[in-house]
Structures are given as structure tokens and as C-alpha cells.
Amino acid sequence: MIGVGKAKQYANVLDRPIGKGKQEVSLSAFAFLFSELVQYNQIQVDNIAELERRLEDAGYAVGARVLELLCHREKGNRREIRLLGILSFIHSTVWKVLFGKVADSLEKGTEHEDEYMISEKELLVNRFISIPKDMGAFNCGAFVAGIVRGVLDNAGFPAVVTAHFVPVDGQHRPRTTILIKFAEEVLQREARLG
């Protein structure tokens, strides 16, 4: 039956046609859900680093699936194998699908060869979040850092990814920078490929 337009039953999830990714839910629905994710994890831990690690783990699971989905849908089952290629894939394709826009900037770290930064003035997950004073440098962007790490790791670019607030002159709210530090082997391979 073609064109019934309703969700149908499939014996196997793999038989189901893959969506075009145009469906939307309200931002509040996501914000409510995300807030529950943070609150749940907050009671599971006794320090900030652990909380960020758990959020990052949750994000990693999302990133791994996003990579698979987008490589199939947007790239005709091809995936980037070069460093700049995968970074720009995250900065544009992944960001556009997940957050509705290309990330504000993608820069190379000035001090270290292996560091790259993706910055966002108002990261979606931080939009309704204010950090209590006693939680110091905690950044819910750890979830997004996890997504980025999930994409990179599964594409063969192991990296350490962290989220940081960076104050901006003349702005009340800081921007969030996702700092990517690639594993040594990635840079060596990149050098070999020339």
C-alpha cells in the first residue's frame, strides 16, 4: 500500500523507510526532555566532572547514530576520511540537521596543532539553562561535545571533546566552544595522507 501516509507496521525496523528528517517537534518538548536528562544525571553523581561525563556519554550515543543516519541520507553512504572533511561535515551537515543552522564558527587552535574549536553563540541545549553558582564551570554543552565525539569516534577520528563557556565582549551570556583534541594517531595518518 503506497501513499497511505500513516506509520505502518513493519516486522523489522530495518524494513521501515528512513525519514527525510523534515519532521519537527516543539523546542519546548526537547527542552523539557533535556532538562529531565540533566536532572536525572545530577542525582546519580557527586561531582561536576562525573555529571559532564554522563551527559557526554548520552550525547555520544546520539552522535554515533547521527553519523550513520546522515552518511546514508545526505552523503549517499559515503563518509569523510580526511580531518578537515569530517570537521566541516560536523560544522555544517550535522549542525544543520540537529540544530537547524550551521555552527557559528569552526577554527583551528592557535597553540596546538591537534586542537579545533566549534563555537556557537547560543547553543540549543544551553538556551534555557542557567548554571547555579555552586556548580562552577559546569556546561550542559557536554551533551553536544558527546555528540561530536560520537560522530568523530565512529568515523575513525578518536578525539577528546569538551565544552567550555567563553565570555564575549559586550554580551551578557557567554558563547559555548566545543574543543576537539584529536588523538595522535589521527594527526599521523593525516600527515601520511599528505
Partner: peptide, 15 residues
């Protein structure tokens, strides 16, 4: 304001 449903779906799955 709306967000992509896939972000929502995958986040829920992660939870």
C-alpha cells in the same frame, strides 16, 4: 520554535 524531531528521538533513546 521547533527542533528537528530526530534530535528529540535520539536524545530520548539515549535517556
Amino acid at each position: 520554535d521547533r527542533v528537528n524531531a530526530e534530535l528529540f528521538t535520539l536524545t530520548y533513546g539515549a535517556i
